[in-house]
């Protein structure tokens, strides 16, 4: 069976024990800060001085860095190439035949990649150290409808199972002589006999799943209780408000300096 479609890495660490709302506040403040900070190296410094130590606290540094760089490097290369080579009226610093890298373009690329790094890093840290169901339960307790959180959570677990089902259908059709390799046209044609069983099968699965959920009282209009205990000590509540205040202060400074 396939694993859940989630980046979560189970560890017994202080970061993992933080309330999901605290980690979400850190992630959202990381996103906001990445857009507020205007300096060339500011976002890189925040990544190195806040996110990397937090990942070390969570005992996930290696997998965290690997996941972040996997996402960031394709963006980084394309941004450096496009902004560096096609910056209009810039100062050439490296010549490549008819094209040249412009200093202003490269500077813009450094700033943009820094923003992406902090943004991706903030969310990766949260998803790697927070169980998705814990986050959703925390949000449910703050008023998020549990049907909405169900959609998010079931997608995380059920998408890989649908992928496995799709693979089975491909194998079944291949064993009956369906050609799935070759040029683009052949591959597109091969998709058609796969779509119908997957689509119809999935609709039937969804119907059964809805019945199974109703049989377990999912449709009841009462506020559900939870087996999972989410600790939320006072210091974490203060920390969350402090983070929000800090981001607002940064924003105010940025507007004032503008």
């Amino acid at each position: 069976m396939s694993a859940a479609f989630s980046l979560y890495q189970s560890r017994d660490s202080g970061l993992h024990r933080l309330n999901p709302l605290t980690k979400m506040t850190i992630a959202l403040s990381g996103v906001a800060t990445s857009l507020i900070v205007s300096g060339v190296w500011g976002n890189y410094l925040l990544f190195l001085l806040i996110l990397v130590p937090l990942s070390a606290w969570g005992q996930i540094t290696y997998s965290f860095l690997r996941a972040v760089f996997r996402v960031v490097w394709p963006f980084a290369i394309s941004i450096f190439l496009i902004q560096g080579l096609f910056w209009t009226d810039g100062t050439p610093v490296i010549d490549l035949g008819p094209l040249s890298f412009k200093a202003e373009g490269l500077l813009f690329a450094v700033i943009s990649v820094g923003r992406i790094l902090l943004l991706v890093g903030s969310f990766t840290l949260m998803t790697m150290s927070t169980r998705p169901d814990a986050l959703m339960i925390a949000l449910n307790q703050r008023g998020l409808p549990h049907t909405l959180s169900y959609v998010v959570l079931s997608a995380i677990q059920i998408v890989p199972m649908f992928q496995a089902k799709a693979n089975k259908i491909v194998e079944a059709q291949q064993s009956r002589g369906l050609e799935t390799s070759g040029n683009l046209l052949k591959r597109v044609r091969a998709l058609l006999p796969l779509v119908e069983p997957l689509l119809l099968g999935s609709i039937l699965d969804i119907e059964e799943r809805a019945i199974a959920l109703e049989a377990r009282g999912f449709g009841r209009r009462v506020k559900p209780t939870s087996l999972l205990i989410l600790k939320d000590p006072v210091w974490e509540k203060i920390l969350r408000w402090a983070i929000v205040a800090l981001v607002l202060a940064l924003l105010a400074v940025r507007i004032w300096l503008w």
Binding site: D133, M136, Y150, D205, A212, R216
Partner: peptide, 11 residues
């Protein structure tokens, strides 16, 4: 069908 009876909401 056992797979369809899993809620998908708990880990």
């Amino acid at each position: 069908t056992p797979f369809n009876q899993i809620s998908g909401a708990r880990f």
